[in-house]
């Protein structure tokens, strides 16, 4: 464990807490893409298949359970909660995210560490996470003004993988642990997708104005 990876995990955790706060406090999920939440639940379920077979540390196991649990709770809230589901932007959240799942799975079948069940699903989860934010970014552009908590959620979610990139660089030089090419390239693509969001987020913060994404 190093400071970069720990910061990344904490940033990721904060993004989830901010999203839970927004949904719980406002009893609304307007501006949140259910499709991105479903993709993230799939990412965690397929990435942590070794949850019960390999033990690294209490921290590692607890965080996996928190990520899987929170993503399922959020999907449940948005689909089933009698009040929250009414505020879901169903007509705006129309990204065909099934294509993202199929594309990631096909790519995982072609590019993976080893042709084993766990490795293919691990690669699938890495590829899927890189593009899982797309429905959310599209929804933000369509829904015009973005409420603060939603903006902060996306900001922290986009920042965490940037910390992981620093972690892979650090591990490469210190532990001679060459992070997998799969993680590195996907992590760079994932962070790059947030580039224009980060730009508008920074502008809104600098001018102290509401976050506006151009349609």
């Amino acid at each position: 464990m190093n400071i970069f990876r720990f910061s990344g995990d904490m940033t990721h955790l904060i993004s989830i807490l901010v999203l839970l706060l927004k949904i719980y406090a406002t009893k609304s999920c307007s501006g949140i893409s259910l499709k991105t939440q479903e993709l993230y639940a799939l990412v965690f379920l397929t990435r942590y298949l070794n949850l019960f077979t390999e033990f690294f540390s209490v921290y590692n196991t607890v965080m996996k359970l928190v990520f899987i649990g929170s993503s399922l709770v959020i999907v449940w809230y948005m689909r089933m909660h009698r009040v929250v589901k009414l505020s879901y932007d169903k007509e705006l959240d129309t990204f065909r995210h099934y294509f993202l799942v199929v594309a990631s799975f096909v790519l995982a079948l072609l590019v993976h560490e080893k042709f084993t069940f766990q490795e293919i699903f691990w690669a699938f989860s890495i590829y899927l996470e890189a593009i899982a934010i797309l429905p959310q970014l599209v929804l933000l552009q369509r829904s015009g003004n973005v409420d603060n908590l939603t903006g902060q959620y996306v900001f922290f979610l986009g920042s965490y993988r940037a910390f992981y990139i620093l972690n892979w660089i650090y591990r490469y030089f210190t532990e001679n642990h060459f992070a997998r090419l799969i993680s590195c390239i996907s992590g760079l693509v994932q962070t790059a997708l947030y580039a224009d969001f980060f730009y508008y987020y920074f502008i809104s913060w600098k001018n102290n104005k509401k976050l506006q994404l151009p349609a």
């Binding site: 990876r5 995990d9 990721h12 990435r47 070794n50 390999e54 690294f56 590692n60 965080m63 996996k64 990520f67 560490e113 691990w122 992981y164 972690n167 997998r180 993680s183």
Partner: peptide, 10 residues
């Protein structure tokens, strides 16, 4: 490298 790579990251 032969060492089995494990996914110790989240």
């Amino acid at each position: 490298d032969p060492e089995v790579k494990v996914h110790d990251e989240l």
